[in-house]
């Protein structure tokens, strides 16, 4: 499978990366080069193979339902949460107005 300019534009839009026409033109052969290369995977016989789910056998741990048990993953830290925000007002993050 190979991609054209329109495909790359669509992918870039899905990924929310603005690209100029010139950048699009440059990206098409690059991405096609990579895609052509990874497509050799298609020749591997994977009949009956289960896709890998855990790299190292391990089971998913579940934590107890306790609020702020570990301060590093708990709430009540509004100042820290907002400290790096480009726009923060009245305890909120600010973004360009959204019309739903």
């Amino acid at each position: 499978m190979s991609v054209n300019t329109a495909d790359v534009a669509k992918i870039a839009s899905l990924a929310r990366i603005k690209v100029s026409e010139a950048q699009l033109e440059a990206m098409v052969p690059e991405l096609n080069g990579i895609l052509a290369w990874v497509e050799q995977l298609g020749e591997v016989d994977v009949t009956g193979v289960t896709p890998m789910t855990a790299v190292i056998p391990n089971t998913l741990r579940l934590r107890d339902d306790v609020v702020n048990a570990d301060p590093l993953t708990g709430g009540d830290i509004r100042d820290a949460v907002l400290a790096n925000a480009p726009v923060a007002e009245h305890g909120f993050f600010g973004v360009p107005k959204v019309i739903e």
Partner: peptide, 27 residues
């Protein structure tokens, strides 16, 4: 109905001040 969120330890109570029940994970 739980005390804490699905993947972080911040609280779920209704009606709190904005962004007070937000952990680094939730943000």
């Amino acid at each position: 109905t739980t005390q804490a969120k699905l993947f972080s330890g911040s609280a779920t109570a209704f009606g709190a001040e904005p962004n007070t029940q937000v952990s680094l994970v939730d943000a």
